[in-house]
Simulated assay, not measured.
Amino acid sequence: MVVWGAILPEITYGNDYREIHRVNGTMINESKLAADFLTKQGYKKFVVVHDTTDYGKGQNKYFSEYLKPTVARSLRRSRSAPTSRISPRSSPRSRSSSRTSS
């Protein structure tokens, strides 16, 4: 199995699955790059907003770790639950059931 879009390190680093291969970097690579880039631009204060999924918690974890050795600091962390982009109003079923008959 080739995992093309999963960047959570535990998928390949945390297990000994010989059948799973990663073709892109992990969130460790992304977070290091982001922290390096932003601190080199002169930013020193951050607010980290992430969702409560493994993806969001992992991005917060690794980005925060790469800020520690710099003069930058995270002022606040805020978690939010992931939400669906589809609302009941946007589904065809709810539009047709809300029509009144004449």
Rank of each mutant, 00 (worst) to 15 (best):
A6P: 03
I7L: 13
L8E: 10
P9V: 08
E10M: 04
I11K: 05
N15M: 13
E19G: 07
E19T: 08
I20M: 02
H21P: 00
N24P: 01
N24Y: 06
G25C: 04
G25E: 03
T26E: 03
T26Q: 04
M27N: 05
N29P: 05
N29S: 10
S31G: 11
K32P: 02
L33D: 07
A34E: 01
K40G: 04
Q41H: 07
G42M: 04
Y43K: 12
K45I: 02
F46T: 03
F46R: 02
V47S: 00
V48M: 07
V48H: 04
V49T: 08
H50F: 09
H50E: 09
H50L: 06
D51N: 14
D51Y: 08
D51K: 07
D54M: 14
Y55S: 11
G56S: 08
G56H: 08
Q59A: 13
K61C: 04
F63C: 03
E65C: 00
Y66P: 01
Y66H: 01
P69C: 01
A72D: 08
R73C: 10
L75R: 05
L75F: 05
R76Q: 12
R79F: 15
R79T: 15
S80N: 14
A81N: 14
R85K: 03
I86H: 01
S87G: 03
S87F: 01
P88F: 05
R89Y: 10
R89G: 09
S90M: 10
P92Q: 07
S94Q: 15
R95Q: 15
S96H: 13
S97D: 14
